[in-house]
Design a protein around this nucleic acid. Structure first.
Lengths: 247, 247
DNA sequence: CCGGAGAGCGCAACACCGTTGACAACAGTG
DNA sequence: CACTGTTGTCAACGGTGTTGCGCTCTCCGG
């Protein structure tokens, strides 16, 4: 029998006249699915269901699933940068970008976890790159040093949200098991072999995810600031000893 | 019932002469495959081929592919910590751990990319946790602050090597495309809309991956140092203003 | 010394995945 | 009206992880 997703037979037939599917409609369907579902949410067949169309209809609008994914990701990342208020200093702008990115990762975990080591090369990616470069520039970095710290910050942020998103995709059982490990298994290790773990087992179990996020963001912000201070100092007093900023 | 908590029973019971497969043999076969192959290297059927056995034979020794993966990952991460020389300061020990982890990620990309947001809860993971905690302790952090910075460093490291490994797994075409984007597409953007990108396009294309790695590791090391300095200062002179480390 | 028990493996099959090629129905154009 | 190109449907292909069944062969108790 034709079309086993039955509710939609007549609809597809009649609406067949115009093109019922558009790239935007498909992208939005993916975002809807991603927002609802777990790790297996974004499959071609499920997307067909969501659209009330044959799964393979997508291939009329996107070369393959990967191209669709990148388009979806670009749309999603747009949300990360949207709500950033103007008039903030470069540090707070970077912090706001990080917070927005994390928000997106928690909203569309499937999409973010599949994209976090990719380059979309689309409109909104350029916007974010420009955004970070502007911050780095305002911090006082130039040329190769600015490029390096942009890449470091951007990659670090992407890695973090990708990691977070991927974790949220595991079965609740696996997630719970991983989290409980801190409270259960680490506490019962041999204190002779693992003195620090056993001593800190309570504190290890109590660490807050949000705090980890803040530490990692702050580490990158401070690193940018530190390197900016170094270059400006070098510019002011040319060629002293490379100041060894540690013990 | 098959023997799912591998190793232990086999060891106590006299070893069956007829059984050709052991958990260790399987783990090593996976490592061999992972070292050779790309993203599709670690499949059950390929593993069967490598072992010269039926693919499903694995399920007599591991509950499912995931349990096998975690065992393999634990073995692999052992290599990260093995070659770290004694007698280094905490900073250099953390740097050595990071370098070793990156080495492992490049050696077994499939394994690392599949594990980077997981917890193996196995022997060698505990060793690495203890290792980092010892460094953080030596840096001067205690209690909840030590736990927090351990988690931040560990997760950041895991995220980075996972991201790197995942990238190496893409088709060479995709990899080349992503890398070339910096040199090609970013250069042709509209300078009015993207002034920083176009101004720095040459430097962006020239950024070295190893430098990014160093920046990100150094950022975390510095953050640990910074927070350690704050707590010790707080301990020396209790409850002043939170010292804002200059704008 | 023998026979049952059960571990280890092979095989076929299942449900799912992304993707392709052939075909049908429609829109727009001459 | 006929033609052409676009878009949706459908069946099918090769891939994945996993399971149930049956065979073999080792081990252990009698």
């Amino acid at each position: 029998m034709p079309n086993r997703y039955n509710g939609a037979i007549m609809a597809t037939r009649t609406r067949r006249s115009g093109s019922q599917l558009s790239p935007d409609q498909i992208i939005e369907a993916v975002l809807r699915i991603a927002e609802r579902g777990g790790s297996d949410a974004f499959t071609v067949r499920r997307l067909g269901e969501e659209l009330g169309a044959d799964p393979t209809a997508i291939y009329r609008h996107f070369r393959d699933k990967d191209e669709l994914l990148l388009s979806v990701a670009d749309r999603a990342f747009g949300e990360a940068i949207d709500g950033i208020p103007a008039g903030l200093g470069w540090k707070d702008r970077l912090r706001a970008l990080a917070a927005g990115s994390l928000r997106v990762a928690l909203k569309y975990p499937v999409v973010v976890s599949m994209t976090a080591s990719r380059t979309t090369r689309r409109e909104r990616e350029f916007l974010i790159v420009e955004f970070i470069l502007e911050c780095v520039h305002e911090a006082g970095l130039e040329g190769g040093e600015a490029a390096l710290l942009y890449r470091s910050f951007g990659d670090a942020l992407l890695a973090f949200i990708g990691q977070t998103a991927a974790f949220r995709l595991f079965d609740p059982d696996v997630q719970a098991g991983d989290l409980a490990a801190w409270a259960r298994e680490y506490r019962t290790l041999d204190p002779a072999r693992f003195p620090h773990i056993t001593r800190l087992s309570d504190e290890l179990a109590a660490v807050d995810e949000q705090e980890i996020f803040d530490v990692r963001v702050e580490a990158m912000v401070s690193e940018i600031e530190r390197r900016a201070a170094l270059t400006s100092r070098r510019r002011a007093a040319p060629a002293p000893e490379e100041p060894s900023e540690q013990a």
